[in-house]
Every structure is written in structure tokens, then in C-alpha cells.
Amino acid sequence: MRNDSNKWDAPAALTVGHTENGVALTPIELTRQTLISGPRVLSQADWSIVGWPGIAPTPPYALSLRRDRVLLVDGPDMADGWQEDTQRAISDASDAYSVFDVSGDRAFEVLQRGAELRLDAESKSVARLLFGIGVLLYRVNTEDQFRIHVASSHAEALVKSLKLAISALRSAGQGNSRPEDALSKTS
């Protein structure tokens, strides 16, 4: 029984974007997120399915989460519950995830601080751990715009981690992390 209010920063306004070292962290407002599970949900080609390191098209699109689950982004309003004809379980999860974009030339370097990520290693699922926190990670529009969905209650921690990682780019130099050309110094 202890008052720890001062040990924890009050939640920062996540509605404001943040740009540093050429990387932008932008909150994204989506109209709707719908959790859809079913034995054939990935083959029922109602929407384009997005995996890693896929680039999502204009919504609606469906994020592949598991062999039998997608998260439909900005899809139609659907009734919650079991849909007998399509054999699908449907739940509105619009507020379950907070959504952010990390974009810029060095956006991938930021994400590499939170997970062992490879653009050349495809994955059928966009679900993974980033900075130890469960997220859905994929790209939208372009090669260097990454979108992250994170459980709303963990958004604060993820944003903090991302901001620190973006700051760390400064000392990491541009691209090549060699601190200085040690040889040229003496030649």
C-alpha cells in the first residue's frame, strides 16, 4: 500500500506526433478494428491479407494474426458473435489496440532496437514482440512506413520505448555505425 503516482509519468498525450532524427512517430486514428476468427478465415478472400513485411494497401485490409485469425482494419460494421454461415467468430476490437506509424529512412533502425527483425524473413503473421511488448507490425503505403498496433494498456510503454530508440539514432551515426574512421586519423 504505497502511493507511486510520482514514479509513473502521467500518460502523455498520444494524439501528438513526434519527429526526431528524421523519424516520425505518428498516432493513427482508425475507424474500426474487428477481430475475426474461423477455420477458413485466411482463405475467405474478402480482404487483402497482410503479413510481414507486407505493405498494406488502402483499407480495408486484414492483418494475418494466426492460422485462423485476422484483424480487419476499417472494415464494415459487423455484429459481434458467431456467424454460422461463414463459420466466423467476430468481435469489435476497435479500442483494444492503439495504432502508430513509425516512418522515415531510418525507421527500420528504430524497430531493430526492439526486436530481431529482418525484412528478408517473411512471416505469415504480423504479431510479434517489440521491446518485449506484444504488437502487430507491418508496413503501409511505402517501404519505410511501419505501422504498429499495440494493446491500448501498453501503448504508453511502447511509445516511451520508441521515443528512446528514435533518440538513440543520433549517436549511432548515419547508417554505418562505425564511430569514426580510425585509420584516416593517423594516415
Binding site: E116, A121, E122, S123, K124, S125, R128, L129
Partner: peptide, 9 residues
């Protein structure tokens, strides 16, 4: 399903 991932997952 997902392919190779870090053991922490």
C-alpha cells in the same frame, strides 16, 4: 505458422 522467431516469443 509464423516461421522463425526469437525464443522470447
Amino acid at each position: 505458422f509464423c516461421g522463425p522467431r526469437n525464443e522470447t516469443e
